[in-house]
């Protein structure tokens, strides 16, 4: 079995094992989107225009939840040294961890996103597009989040620091993702915004592995 598969399977097992992180993220996501109608009133005329925006904000916040364990635990228990002495470069380790984070957390969230948007009054015709946008955006969240988690390594209150570092970087995907859905709801083509969203994700996927690996080396030394 190749090292990529071995590490990927371990990351998935760690994400799902002991506490069910992905379910927690989905629960958090559903709670957030449920609170909005309670806070702003259940009137669909109020909710519908902001449905896409609120769903994406909730998505971004829910994606933050499990980032803390991505590298911090491995640093605490020494597993990061083990990963650094493996056959793959640290850059590859960061990329694999981000990809596993996406599969473990981003995918369940993308499945939950259309339901949440529906509850906020979004038209059911937009459900496939919502899921697709959440899938692509989730990949961006995972890579950007991995970078933030690596940068916050070794800091006290790392989880909070990750949120502060990462949330500003989540703004572009939120803008593009929510923009695509808003345009689609207005009967315009969502694809220009989707193209920008994809471009952001590719950018994050290129930047995060080398930058994250450099941050990890700094934390190890």
């Amino acid at each position: 079995m190749s090292a990529v598969v071995i590490l990927f399977r371990r990351e998935l097992a760690l994400a799902w094992g002991g506490g069910g992180g992905p379910l927690l993220a989905c629960g958090f996501f559903v709670c957030l989107t449920t609170i909005v109608p309670l806070a702003a009133g259940g009137d669909l005329a109020t909710l519908r225009p902001v449905a896409a925006g609120v769903a994406w904000l909730a998505l971004a916040l829910a994606s933050l939840l499990s980032l803390e364990r991505l590298f911090e635990r491995d640093l605490e228990d020494g597993a990061l040294d083990l990963l650094a002495l493996g056959p793959l470069s640290l850059e590859a380790v960061v990329a694999i961890k981000a990809a596993a984070q996406w599969l473990a957390t981003g995918l369940p969230l993308a499945l939950a996103a259309p339901i949440a948007a529906l509850a906020l009054g979004q038209s059911i015709d937009l459900a496939p597009l919502t899921m697709l946008a959440a899938l692509i955006g989730g990949l961006g969240f995972a890579f950007t989040g991995a970078l933030g988690a690596a940068l916050a390594l070794g800091a006290k209150r790392g989880g909070l620091l990750i949120a502060i570092v990462v949330l500003p970087l989540f703004i572009p995907p939120v803008v593009f993702g929510a923009g695509a859905l808003t345009r689609a709801a207005e009967g315009l083509s969502p694809w220009p915004a989707m193209a920008l969203l994809t471009a952001y994700v590719l950018f994050a996927a290129v930047i995060a592995p080398p930058a994250g690996a450099a941050a990890i080396r700094g934390a190890q030394g």
Binding site: A13, L14, G17, G18, R73, D74, E76, D77, G78, A79, L80, D81, L82, A84, L85, G86, P87, L88, S89
Partner: peptide
Amino acid sequence: RARQVHMLGHLEGLKGAR
């Protein structure tokens, strides 16, 4: 280091929940 070095430190790199 990627193929021929083993390092065993105070921290063993083991996950308690597994």
